[in-house]
Design a protein around this nucleic acid. Structure first.
Lengths: 224, 224, 224, 224
DNA sequence: AATGAATGAGCCTTCATTCAT
DNA sequence: GATGAATGAAGGCTCATTCAT
């Protein structure tokens, strides 16, 4: 039964996956050719068709891996901070997130790929949402809810979380412009990232507390 | 001898520019074909090469226009808010910016094009930085500096400005994901945008004030 | 407006049409490659796409021409025999038809192409039916009807016509086998074809007359 | 050393043969892929090459079986009609042949495959001629010769036989066109086929008798 | 000032086949 | 006896570009 894509874990298959992950993350689905991939993976053009049916099949598998990785990463972060007191939790969430996003050493192809899909989605975006984002949504919300002193069905929870997340991701997404406007030689060193994270933390904590002091708005129906 | 691109302002040329602006903004440089453009502009395939040398030449001219327009738009916003007291200035800056970014009625092709270039730059990105962003940088900074009670060479100014800008742009950039996770039928109506803007304003004002209360850090060299 | 296939009558376009007609007739749609065509037509691979949108577009235009030619040919035959008495009409119809089908000198690509489509139709078959077959159906029927001494709504008309046509076409369609079973050196010379035609005529005339002598069956609804 | 195709009669081998016979008959050699065959036969892609050396090898074996089957079928028909009086013999030959060719229930893959090869031969055509057609040629001829009151070396024998055979096969070969021109809902039911066969019989019997009445032409050398 | 015609490079995909186990 | 993995050739098509008018 050779019809379903062979799921075997061959050396060639692995090489194609590894190579194409880098390329897709760096250049986007449409800017990567099968030829590039196969050349870099030292294999034949038809191998992609054999192992992944077609280019999109390969891409979806790469995205699948990225989504899984993203979920694991986020889970790790949340696991690490959950025992801490609320303020420290936020501080470390921001710090770890920004390091993952900006540190050129730590920065994996997954982040790039997901950022790319976020902004310019392909049919594979659903995988990311369902496997990478939604599963940790509730835990994310609880982190902010506690600081707000409210529950997940309070709209302020998500607005505040998005404000925090937005600040972090903004640095990632606008890197091309930032790097061009920054002084020559500027780099996102761990120290620089730490400083930025501390700023985002201070800024956001104050924002959250200010909103916590306001009268609670109408609750909303909450979906996972 | 290579004839210079005819700069004449003919009807055909204008039509190509207008049409390709929309298409580039909507789909990105690489996802638009010359055929699409020429079909929509009701002209023939060779017209683009005749008037703009090649596809990139056309794109650069479109970006140029967008950068100019962006500068004009930002200037208008700043002009409109400058007479107001500092808090109102920030509130309206956020509100107008978010409406420009999110309101599907108001949303011009320029915003889309620039957002696209910001995240995935082409050789035309420099035009946007120099003509669209840098010229209003100082006025942007002053808006925050006054609230912080400090000067442009205080690093908190830019960090706070980026925190504000980041929240606004985040909604734009992550729209594809947001729309998928939002309840079915959700839309960015003017009322929804107003509410989001108000949240960002409250959140940010508190953040700025919190940082203003801290001891001033070392000044930095300031560049336009 | 370069979108619709350019209908201009260029030299290149003509060459492609001429060359591909031969190739399609000889080898069938699926056994001819665009590369073959373009090489034989001394032009570029993209020319087919430019002039005919795609391979099927080219094929349909070829079939169109064949259908028109078939119609013209049949009309000529019918024009030529109509002044004659009924028996001569049938004799010459058979003779001319078989010469067109079998004579290797006269045999054009059209016959081959249409025979091919008849047996193994592509989406282009409808063109042949509507433009090449149906328009002369009525005149064909009248030729037999007169010999039968009946009208077009008599089912014997079509059965007899198909018996005549079937004998003629059979020689064409089973040529590959016939040639292999015939004595070595056998060829469809004009004299051989004349003899075959005379046989078919005698055989069919007797068949028609025998059926004419029978009581008339129920009439049927007649469609063009 | 090139290992000879394993001739063993395994289950897998049988399944491939059975499945590919259907597919080849339905779609022709070139329109069937090895993948289709192997998928339908629930085996892997390499099996065809293992058992039959290559695609053509498989095809030839299928044709071989078809030729044998055709021979058996024809022999059965001739066996069944030989005891009957000459006229009944012809009537039943036509009737049985047309049912085999046209009845969608009875219609086996062999008929289709052979019709296909007849019109568009592959290197396998010789098998059909030698094993499927030639062996019954003499008995076929005798059926007509008796009605003509002549011997096998009379050229009228073969011309008349081909006229009969031509009418029968014509309905098969031009089915694609016939079905399109027939009124919607038309089908080759057993009753319809019977009626057609009766017409062909009446038509042909009259044709044969008319030729029988003519003076005998020069004899020809007769080959099996 | 503008265009219809033509081009060559390159893309993704599919195919029959073979290799190594 | 049988198969999963891998391969190279070829196919149709699209693209941005240029030529000649």
């Amino acid at each position: 039964m050779p019809q379903p894509a062979p799921a075997a874990d061959t050396e060639t298959r692995r090489r194609i996956l590894s190579v194409s992950a880098q390329l897709f993350a760096e250049n986007g689905f449409n800017h990567v050719t099968i030829r590039q991939i196969c050349q870099a993976a030292q294999t034949n053009i038809a191998a992609v068709n054999y192992h992944f049916r077609d280019k999109l099949g390969l891409y979806k598998e790469v995205v699948q891996i990225a989504a899984d990785g993203m979920h694991r990463l986020k889970s790790d972060v949340l696991d690490a901070i959950e025992p801490q007191p609320p303020e420290e939790r936020l501080r470390n969430y921001v710090r770890l997130t920004m390091h993952h996003l900006l540190d050129p050493h730590e920065q994996s192809w997954m982040e790039k790929l997901i950022a790319r899909e976020t902004m310019e989605p392909t049919p594979a975006i659903d995988l990311i949402i369902e496997k990478g984002i939604r599963p940790t949504a509730e835990r994310n919300g609880r982190m902010v809810a506690e600081l707000l002193g409210t529950t997940l069905d309070d709209p302020r929870v998500w607005q505040c979380f998005l404000s925090v997340q937005g600040q972090c991701l903004f640095y990632k997404m606008s890197m091309p412009v930032t790097m061009r406007m920054a002084p020559p030689g500027f780099q996102y060193t761990p120290e620089v990232i730490d400083a930025l994270a501390e700023h985002v933390y201070q800024f956001s904590l104050a924002g959250i507390r200010a909103l916590a002091a306001q009268p609670a708005p109408a609750k909303m129906e909450w979906r996972p």
